[in-house]
Design a protein around this nucleic acid. Structure first.
Lengths: 318, 318
DNA sequence: TCCAGTTATAGTCAATGCGATTATAAGGGC
DNA sequence: GCCCTTATAATCGCATTGACTATAACTGGA
């Protein structure tokens, strides 16, 4: 790692292209109220901090300051995306933002100061299909169609119409929960979210329901949601969000909270049982209302054994 | 995007943490010889260049200088990973490297100057299973076992042994082509690749067959291979590597080159046919030796229609 | 000219995966 | 004791897909 790279074309010798590097964290937890994200400024922004030179790596730097600020250890951490914004400061200075997805358990959050947990679906109300299709979708469709019609040429109209139809399950298509990012980007492009106004686009209609965030933080949150919804299908990351002991229904509710859709209970139990991801503790809990449920724990040993194709979940078809 | 972010804890006011940002490109093409990567320095490094402030975004900056250097347009571009190395210059200066995967067609490469195409499997000979399991694997296994045995405590010995067994298909396990990165990391950890020596680790055995690269470029290449092998299974990115017209066998050979394993021919054709990813052109070619084959082209319209779960390929099981 | 070899293309069979449904067990509250 | 809840087990059937077989069409050599 400590070797020089040798000559490279394109490098302007002597000219510095210095930038600042920021780390942005999407810290996710799931509680009874649903999937939550750690926010600052009363839910208007994601926690972020500068990449300190003192740290060993980007990941350890992120881990350090998030744990310092929230007092909670982060379990799973995954890099989301790196982007560079020119217009942040206006000058020659430029900021590179490296966003991360982190999973944790809420527990003793302590809500210290300005930090608080906010529900995903406050920001993306159209993403929660656990109680059936949200009624707001039917009000959204005509606005998207109107946007598609407003294109200059026919090809663009057709393309917009199709993208909207695929992303938002128009024309009796199946809802695909993994398209959370595409949906937000489409709403941004159609100037139907509040963030789109900030570019100076004046001719804007009333934004669609859903809280906005400062800068592009809502877009980063959408990226995290899409990534997580995809990941839980083939890697056992859900368990980072679970307490040490849990019932199978609690596990199912967590997956449902993340994916935003309901799962068939017997099939979920069968799939969890087939893979050796959990093991019985013998203990039971009667806090669930009906018949007492077995308490399970995560079978850690399986982690290395199944590097890919881990947690298959019955989320395949609609 | 041009909003101030507001106050943030952890930010050391007035202290600059300036860094340099480098872009590293893994440019992939497939020809008759197999899967290739664009290299500089006679195959010892990946092309890389600084992120210029003048450019609109990271991606456009990468696209610009790669196309400038190679004369080839890059089709698909995807961000791989961002990392920060402290020990590069030794001083306070730090470099953030943002790596990308790009797909293109070789064609008029022109091999201008010091750039050339090199086969993937020159760097990772253990990854090519198209002619059956490479014999070198059987020489590799005992060395990995020896490394596992060399651990201090029993738990680590057991863990090393299991990770090696999973990654390298020991004990009659199935070969998983998507574990290319884990395999390289394991060999690095076991000090069985030349790169591991550079850290000052003196007690090193003879490295395993396979060309090394400068810095951590071979690790980045392994990341790209693993990502691509995973991606072709659910997104139709293979077509970025194909000429405008191609036969189904050519398409199959390309997928096989990338995944490093053979595919059952009738099943491949069935899966390609079921999804409407290609369309017949009516033309045929007799250059294939036997019965003339139909020439197909990629059905572009399908791209937006299948945002996820696109190209399902018969690569599921062993 | 016929035959062998090569590739293209279509079709069959069986095992498996998985979505949907039903049935039974075990607790609590009124 | 009845009815509610939830837990847990078992079954049915369709769709996917891995493995295999058969036929078609062309080239080149004996």
């Amino acid at each position: 790692m400590d070797q020089a790279k040798g000559p490279r074309e394109g490098r302007a010798i002597g000219k510095t292209n210095d930038v600042n590097a920021d780390l942005i964290a999407v810290v996710v937890a799931v509680n009874d109220a649903g999937p939550c994200v750690l926010t600052i400024e009363q839910g208007a922004a994601l926690p972020s901090g500068p990449f300190e030179l003192a740290h060993r790596s980007l990941q350890s730097s992120l881990r350090a300051w998030v744990e310092l600020q929230t007092g909670q250890p982060l379990g799973y951490i995954e890099q989301l995306y790196t982007f560079a914004d020119r217009d942040r400061t206006g000058g020659n200075e430029r900021v590179i933002s490296i966003s991360y997805l982190a999973l944790t358990r809420e527990e003793d959050a302590g809500a210290s100061g300005r930090r608080s947990w906010a529900s995903w679906y406050d920001y993306f109300p159209w993403e929660d299909h656990r109680s059936g299709r949200p009624p707001m979708l039917e009000e959204l469709w005509p606005r998207l169609i109107e946007w598609a019609q407003g294109a200059d040429d026919g090809a663009t109209r057709f393309d917009r119409r199709r993208r909207a139809a695929v992303a938002f399950a128009m024309d009796d298509r199946a809802w695909n929960e993994e398209l959370a990012l595409q949906r937000y980007e489409l709403l941004y492009e159609a100037a139907l979210v509040e963030e789109a106004k900030r570019g100076g686009d004046s001719a804007i209609l009333a934004p669609v329901p859903g809280r906005s965030m400062s800068a592009d933080h809502r877009r980063i949150l959408a990226t995290a949601i899409a990534r997580l919804r995809s990941k839980i299908k083939y890697r056992p990351v859900v368990f980072e969000l679970m307490p040490p002991l849990f019932t199978l229904l609690q596990l199912q509710r967590t997956v449902e909270a993340l994916s935003g859709r309901l799962i068939n209970k017997p099939n979920f139990r069968r799939l969890i049982g087939q893979q050796e991801l959990v093991e019985k503790t013998g203990a039971t809990t009667a806090e669930t209302g009906g018949r007492p449920a077995q308490l399970y724990r995560f079978h850690h040993a399986i982690l290395d054994e199944r590097p890919v194709a881990g947690t298959k979940l019955p989320l395949a078809r609609a």
